[in-house]
Design a protein around this nucleic acid. Sequence first.
DNA 1: ACTAATGTCCTTTTT
DNA 2: GGACATTAGT
Length: 672
Amino acid sequence: MLKIDFKKELNAAQYEVVTTGLGPHLVLAGAGSGKTRTLVYRAAWLIHQGVNPEKILLLTFTNKAAGEMMLRVKNLLGLKTGASLPLWGGTFHSIANRLLRAYGKYIDVPSDFTILDTDDKKSLLKIISKDLLANLPDRHKPSPALISETISFAVNSQISLEESLEYKFSEWLPMLEYFEKVNKEYETRKKNAKLLDFDDLLLYWRQLTLETRAKKIMEDKWEYILVDEYQDTNTLQAEIVFNLSQKHKNILVVGDDAQSIYSFRAANIQNILEFPEKFKNCQLHKLETNYRSTPEILDLANNLIVGSPEQFKKNLQAVKDSHVRPELAALRSNTEEAWFVADKIQYLLSLGMRPNQMAVLFRAAHHSQTLEMELNRRGLAYEMRGGLKFFERAHVKDVLAWLKILGNHRDEVAWSRILQLYEGIGPVTAQLIYQRLLELKNIDDLLDFKLTLADKAASSWSRISELLGILISHKTENIGRLVNFIIEHYSEYLEEKYPDYRQRQDDLDQLAMFASGYASLELFLNEISLQESFGLGGTSQDTDAIVLSTVHQAKGLEWPAVFVINLTNQSFPHPLAVSEEEQAEERRLLYVAITRAEHYLYLSYPLAIYRYDGYKSFQPSPFLTELDSKLFRYNELASKATYAAQDGIEYVPDPDTTVRKPGQFLPDVDEW
DNA sequence: ACTAATGTCCTTTTT
DNA sequence: GGACATTAGT
């Protein structure tokens, strides 16, 4: 094991946390204060103290964060990158998945369950919804997405369906009974098909912590629990943490209440606020030194968060040297905004900055579209994060559905997806076939399974069973090979349905390549459903590309130069965020965006966006116009729009304002 | 029962 | 501009 000079490599506050005694600890860590570093060193310190690494559980918020943290622990301990670390670490969902595969039997959860992602969940709810209220036109029924959210929120907050409905979509309260019926049926169908959704993973893990035998196993397994991003845990997760730490009481959680941005997913800020009451003799620590950003950027962030009703008071101090003030730019349209960003990027590149030192952040995944086109036009490589993931793309899911059937032939969602790809098979026939398929004991029985169907459906079924025959007989072979069989069969449909089939074909080839690295079907299916694997979908980790990301996805990351675009009154705060709490969360979201930047920060917004129904004009985000104007450098339009907004006037740019072209948005007043 | 064509609505964030 | 629901036709 490497020798680590803890005292030298950490600041005083971090050192205190890392080397603190046992028992419960709450660490309030501001943005950029070395939160991850502290957690990583804490794990290493415990190990240096002679703690068996297997006794440590490290819970994080995203798989990316987990991967990075495990890597850093390894490096710190002097282990090779490829070496396996006996310490368990991951997201709540991925740990739950591992546990349930092993110990689910104690609470009647089959070990070979399939995980439903959000999209799968919606399709199952859609099937059920159709069945239950066939006579009612859809416009009078809540959408599957709405039902899904209501159920999810209820489970994760541990409240009733009624309370969840009242809180989230009170206008649907009159149909509560329908929600309950759908939910009940949803539970039944999941059970029959051996399906677990994301919420079930947490729900059953909590159940495991209450079951005597499983509880003992977990207590023997972990004596030290470390949790990152605690401000974004939900009620269920907090209960799991509480139950897990009852025996040994060695629990250390890190979080920042100013960065709580997941309440839509039932994150409960009370978890962190009430931690000291819930855990007796809890020690409170604060990390208030920011190592990331320049004082100018921090001033802006602090000024923004002043308007937030925050419970724990922190005062973030910068240690970096002063630099330029952040720049605020208003542009006449979203096209101009894209030119502006692209011009600035090329300017920074000319200063010698690398593409991967820059990121463009935005509120919603589709806000990047115009910019993407512009970057493509200029031949600038970028990596898109947020929005549809590789494994959520329609064609990828189609191919995966075959593998899922192979792994669990009762998977209703996968069957329904595949069957309806074929001519002559719609929802009704698909359901009929599925019901018959339930008679099968084993997927192998499918080889001599006979069905009577109408002409078109019958010929489709024979094509389906032909492929299944091939797959079943090669079941134990390399997964990449299986995927190739499926692609061969599927490509005809792909070319017909999608004009951009070439690109999609590439995706599938990548999938085959990726799949060939797995030894077993179970392992493969397991991992993809929680998206634990990186580097798929056209980009790999170490590509030198500009990052385009939603603010949510950017959480925990940092870049020397950050652009936050589309900061209009119609997107930040998002118009659907109406309540005071939601507005406060939008403010924290912008806070997270701003605090990602180390040296350069550009905030911009278009005054108009061209859409299908003509130009629509916008005003600057209220979060911007309320800020102290001395904190920015403004371009001409931005200063006019800001003054107008402060006087409560809508600003429309003067048509005589000099119109600029791409390449003409170089710095007006750049000071460096 | 399914498909193709027409009409209508909304447009967030994610494990 | 696109997802999705409804409607008319096979």
